[in-house]
């Protein structure tokens, strides 16, 4: 698996700060926010400096009941080419439903929703992943999402489901340790069990993000500092295998660059304190 190193989510609000942040090996951009013909100057500067840029899609809905739309896959492929990216990532989620297959209005969720972890879902998702892989010029990695709602008829644990997807399609994994923590607090799903069941060698990189507890519910806001429990899950993951890349996601309520740098240092310390660290 390609080594990525330490990265941060590229956002227009912090783009100039990224020029000065030390030790940034790579960035991830939200694919839908990038227009291939008009790469923002700050991103172009990073590319010119040799910083790897990975497009991260949010609207494909590869876990939906329909086959992935060719134009959405083509758009992702176009961004891969424009950025010279070594891989492209999306989410194990559905984002729209209804329409022709159900005879009901097509509805957009506006965000990522969990798929049921059933045999039906696995069969559909595996085929959708293969369709996507055929259309994309680089490897695809898929991310585990956080959710508040749980399907009542799950037949697999999260780790088992991810392992099945890797086994059937060879897809790579983007493991979000903040999402594992979120699902622990909100749905009682043990991150250690998920990490035990999933194939760590399939991990392309890891997401780390901050959140906040409100009324007994963990909100994965990407707008608060990264907390100890999330770093603990990262530590658990690293004790199995140090991932090829780790990326801090911050989407809002941006702190001064020095604070971001300190947060990146904290994450680096977790990576290096584990016995397997390189």
């Amino acid at each position: 698996m390609e080594h990525l190193g330490m990265g941060i989510g590229w956002r227009s609000e912090i783009d100039t700060a990224l020029d000065r942040l030390p030790g940034i090996d790579w960035v991830e951009v939200v694919a839908e926010n990038i227009c291939p013909g008009h790469i923002p100057d700050s991103l172009r500067r990073l590319l010119d400096r040799g910083v790897t840029v990975v497009p991260h899609g949010v609207s494909l809905g590869i876990g939906g009941a329909e086959r992935p739309a060719p134009q959405r896959l083509a758009a992702l492929a176009e961004r891969v080419e424009a950025l010279g990216a070594p891989l492209v990532t999306e989410h194990i989620a559905f984002v729209r439903a209804g329409g022709e297959m159900t005879g009901s209005p097509l509805l957009e969720a506006g965000h990522l929703l969990p798929v049921p972890r059933t045999r039906d879902s696995l069969e559909v998702l595996a085929e959708n992943i293969r369709i996507a892989q055929d259309c994309l010029p680089v490897p695809l990695a898929l991310e585990n999402i956080a959710a508040l709602v749980s399907w009542p008829d799950n037949e697999y644990s999260e780790g088992e489901f991810l392992a099945e997807l890797v086994e059937r399609t060879g897809v790579r994994l983007l493991i979000d340790v903040a999402n594992l923590h979120t699902n622990h607090v909100n749905r009682g799903e043990d991150p250690a069990a998920a990490l035990d069941a999933l194939p760590v060698e399939a991990i392309a990189y890891v997401h780390v993000a901050g959140g906040v507890m409100r009324d007994g519910v963990w909100h994965d806001t990407h707008a608060h500092p990264v907390t100890e429990p999330v770093l603990d899950v990262l530590g658990q993951l690293c004790s199995k295998a140090v991932p090829p890349g780790v990326l801090l996601e911050r989407d809002d309520n941006f702190p001064p660059p020095a604070e971001l740098a300190a947060e990146l240092d904290t994450i680096r310390r977790v990576l290096t304190r584990t016995p397997q660290a390189a």
Partner: peptide, 23 residues
């Protein structure tokens, strides 16, 4: 045909949940 039956069941289940969530 392959995954069509699974797709149909998944489509109805996802539409029912999403409709409850947004409509």
């Amino acid at each position: 045909s392959g995954t069509d039956a699974a797709r149909q069941r998944l489509a109805l289940a996802q539409a029912a949940l999403l409709s409850a969530l947004v409509a």
